[in-house]
Amino acid sequence: MIINNLKLIREKKKISQSELAALLEVSRQTINGIEKNKYNPSLQLALKIAYYLNTPLEDIFQWQ
């Protein structure tokens, strides 16, 4: 199972779901689904999230 800290990191950086979704060219619902662990992002999307949040990938997504 993958645990993610996306919501915590996104809120710490004061970025809304809508703003992050626009940067990543995905829907706000996609961001919401990832934050709620409804599904895991593709590797490409995970890397883009880490890039736009300027945060190491392993700080956002962790195996458990």
Rank of each mutant, 00 (worst) to 15 (best):
Ile49Trp: 01
Tyr51Thr: 09
Leu45Lys: 02
Asn5Phe: 06
Gln44Lys: 12
Lys13Trp: 07
Leu20Ala: 02
Ile60Pro: 00
Ile49Met: 07
Ile15Gln: 04
Gly33Leu: 14
Arg28Lys: 12
Ile60Gly: 01
Glu35Asp: 02
Asp59Cys: 07
Leu47Ile: 12
Ile34Gln: 00
Lys12Pro: 02
Glu58Thr: 10
Lys7Asn: 06
Leu6Ile: 05
Lys13Gln: 13
Ile3Ala: 08
Leu20Ile: 05
Leu43Thr: 08
Asn54Arg: 09
Glu25Cys: 10
Leu23Thr: 07
Leu57Phe: 07
Ile2Tyr: 12
Gln17Trp: 03
Leu24Glu: 00
Pro56Asp: 08
Thr30Glu: 09
Leu43Phe: 13
Ala46Arg: 05
Ala50Met: 04
Asn37Leu: 06
Gln64Lys: 10
Gln44Ala: 15
Ile15Asn: 02
Gln17Met: 08
Lys48Leu: 10
Ile31His: 00
Arg28Cys: 09
Asn54Thr: 09
Leu57Thr: 04
Lys38Tyr: 13
Ser27Asp: 12
Ile2Leu: 12
Ala50Leu: 02
Lys7Ala: 11
Ser42Gln: 05
Leu6Gly: 01
Thr30Ile: 13
Asn37Gly: 14
Ile34Leu: 07
Glu35Ile: 02
Ile9Leu: 10
Tyr39Val: 14
Pro41Ile: 10
Ala46Leu: 05
Thr55Arg: 05
Trp63Asp: 03
Ile60Phe: 03
Glu35Gln: 02
Ile49Arg: 00
Leu57Ala: 04
Ile34Trp: 06
Leu6Met: 11
Asn54Phe: 05
Leu23Gln: 12
Glu19Ser: 10
Leu47Pro: 01
Ala21Lys: 02
Tyr51Lys: 11
Tyr39Trp: 10
Lys48Asp: 07
Val26Phe: 02
Pro41Asp: 01
Leu53Glu: 00
Pro41Cys: 06
Leu23Ala: 15
Lys14Pro: 04
Asp59Ile: 08
Asn54Asp: 14
Ile15Leu: 11
Lys7Tyr: 06
Thr55Asp: 03
Ser27Phe: 03
Leu6Val: 05
Gln62Tyr: 07
Leu24Asn: 03
Ile3Pro: 05
Ser42Val: 04
Tyr52Asn: 06
Glu19Phe: 09
Ala50Val: 05
Leu57Asn: 02
Leu57Gln: 03
Ile31Ala: 02
Ile60Gln: 01
Leu53Ile: 04
Lys38Phe: 13
Asn5His: 07
Lys13Met: 14
Glu58Asp: 14
Ser18Gly: 14
Ile2Lys: 09
Ser16Trp: 03
Leu24Val: 15
Thr30Lys: 09
Trp63Asn: 04
Ile9Asp: 01
Glu11Tyr: 06
Tyr52Leu: 11
Leu20Arg: 00
Gln29Val: 12
Gln62Leu: 08
Leu20Lys: 00
Glu58Val: 09
Met1Gln: 06
Ser27Leu: 03
Lys14Phe: 10
Lys14Glu: 11
Leu45Val: 06
Arg10His: 01
Gln62Arg: 11
Leu47Lys: 11
Gln29Asn: 14
Gly33Ser: 15
Lys14Gly: 15
Thr55Pro: 00
Lys38Trp: 15
Ile34Arg: 00
